[in-house]
Amino acid sequence: MTSETHFEQSKRRTFFKSGIAFISGVISLAMAVPLIGAAIAPAFKKGQKKWVDLGLVELLKGARHKKINYTFQAKDGWVQATRERSVYVTDEGGGRFVVFSRVCTHLGCLVRWDEKKRHYHCPCHGGIFDETGNVIAGPPPRPLERPSVKVENGILYVREV
């Protein structure tokens, strides 16, 4: 084999190697975009916000840290699911209500109202929130969530996502 043909052969093989890398790259990219797109899509899906009926204001008059469980319909993938939620409602007078989500801002356990100690207590890691939902002890990084509320036609609504 002459050095020239050896050189040409080497050039051809370099082209083949680049070609294999190029084709592998094209197919991988053409696959990665739709596959990863499909897999991570839920992270970009915005939940539909809606007002959920919590009950008649009349029945909630004078409520102090009253636990209310409620359900509502929401789409869960291909299923129309019944979601269950739990909140604490406090009547602040003058038609104003404060609603605290029961979900601990630490790692998502449900907090409980301790009537004797007058604070919310998380059973998982000992997070404690005061009456206004602020953290007074334990690991939670933020106060309890306060979903938006409104009163319409004598009914208290909470904003659900």
Partner: peptide, 14 residues
């Protein structure tokens, strides 16, 4: 698949 918001009747547990 009922209409969204149509079935928001809460179940109370005071």
């Amino acid at each position: 698949t009922p209409e969204e918001d149509a079935d928001d009747t809460p179940v109370f547990d005071f």
